[in-house]
Nucleic acid binder design. Structure first.
Lengths: 258, 258
DNA sequence: TGCCTTCTGATAGAATTTGATCGAAATTGT
DNA sequence: ACAATTTCGATCAAATTCTATCAGAAGGCA
């Protein structure tokens, strides 16, 4: 095996860590074809940068999860089977080279987690947390655009800056998470500023796809974002009741059940 | 093999880098038919332009394996005593009710950590990490505005959206972290897009205050942000040498030593 | 041609990286 | 609690790589 640059070796250690959660000094030394001492030195260097945490015998990714860490939301979004299923159905609609928009929400967060591997993807979002997913994945072919604004408690950037940013952009597809949907009131959200921002998202996209699990049906938030009939598709779970499905099929072009 | 122009040789180095992710001085010298010294000089030239990053034994495309862990910057900013001292001196210039701007940087990050308790503060920043400090503190009297844009590796949101957002805003005081400062070249940064964004920050502020530790003196980045004389004050540490202090006192209205 | 600037190659000394060894520290089993 | 095993960190020597410096070659210009 050809010699390997020190920086490449450290990169491979980080790759191994992301894959296996934890690595051992002895196995790394064998895999990389260097002495254990060298592995130790690499681990020390990486630990000093905070890229990993050393433990006896090897190293792990950050061990102590702080309270308000993205991991919390991460699990929240992904451990809900329905949200994951919806995300997996929605991600099939995304092709390499496309530009998409994701508003802030746990369902769109789950979708974002599925998108980090897609090549040549441009993503517009108003959620710092969703942006963080892509930053962490660091896919060099992806282009992540964060709208500006003021953050709401639900992690959405809203206000004039967000509207101004979205007014300057245009994407192929918008995936919009909502708080409520009914036949009468359409798609709604409890926060007026978010509603306004979501309307700007809709204007900025050629196609609008709502992602929402069955718990959203029958819920009406303070503000309407858009009537049912004015979006192109809805991706939801199979647990939605039959009556709702019928109503949605009437109002929408496409209803996708995950 | 026929002779090759220096520029063509450097282009081939970049091509090889894109293909292989990393190159080695010895192999490049063999492939290009020149001495290792020449390869080193080419790598230095390319590294100064920011086209690649030198590592021991060769070069790689993007920077060191920086895992995007928040703790990294946090520790880096706060464990440096000088940065903390500068932040503590700078925070005294901020009064309740003011609006301030903070660009992305480890020194401004340290400053932000000191600001979470100030009442009725409006903060404009292009750093998601700095915004996160304020989000986590959740001071209800504070107003945090994140400019939009595309994130650089140094955690700065830049590009048209950032410029457009800053064009719509006006703050009382800007605290600007820089990468380098010299009497001749003024305040500089290695990233052109960041330089552009920082200039927009300067335009958006009534007063401009630079925060920079002594290691920045004598360093010139690729792009000038602004000449020394066109900012209102500089906050730096006492470790700056006397000659530098004299030069700065001549060029600036106010020099604050922490 | 003569002079100057720029680029290239060679050399030497400094700095970095690596592997081996050994005593100290931590972990595990009884 | 004690001993065996494993792992860790410090130190030194060898190898590699880097930087600084000098000298020669190539090309431009009067």
């Amino acid at each position: 095996m050809t010699e390997m640059l020190a920086s490449a070796r450290q990169q491979r250690i980080l790759d191994a860590l992301r894959e296996r959660e934890q690595v051992r000094v002895t196995s790394l030394a064998a895999e990389l074809g260097v002495s254990e001492m060298t592995v130790r030195r690499d681990l020390n260097a990486l630990a000093e940068r905070g890229a990993l945490v050393k433990v006896h015998g090897g190293a792990t990714l950050d061990a102590a999860p702080t309270s308000s860490e993205p991991g919390f939301t991460h699990k929240l979004a992904l451990e809900s089977g329905e949200k994951l299923a919806i995300a997996q159905a929605a991600v099939k609609l995304i092709k390499p080279g496309m530009s998409i928009a994701l508003n802030s929400g746990t369902t769109t967060y789950a979708l974002a987690s599925q998108c980090t591997g897609i090549k040549d993807l441009t993503v517009v979002t108003n959620s710092p947390r969703i942006a963080e997913i892509f930053y962490a994945a660091a896919n060099p072919s992806q282009n992540i655009i964060l709208t500006g604004g003021i953050r709401t408690v639900s992690d959405a950037l809203v206000g004039p800056l967000a509207l101004s940013a979205l007014g300057q952009l245009h994407v192929d597809v918008l995936f919009l998470g909502v708080h409520g949907m009914t036949a009468e009131d359409g798609f709604t959200t409890p926060n007026m500023l978010e509603a306004q921002t979501n309307q700007a998202f809709i204007k900025a996209a050629a196609r609008q796809i709502i992602v929402a699990d069955h718990t959203k049906w029958g819920v009406t938030g303070l503000c309407q974002i858009v009537p049912l009939s004015q979006v192109d598709a809805l991706v939801t779970g199979t647990r939605l009741d039959e009556e709702a499905k019928d109503l949605l099929r009437q109002a929408l072009d496409t209803l996708i059940l995950a």
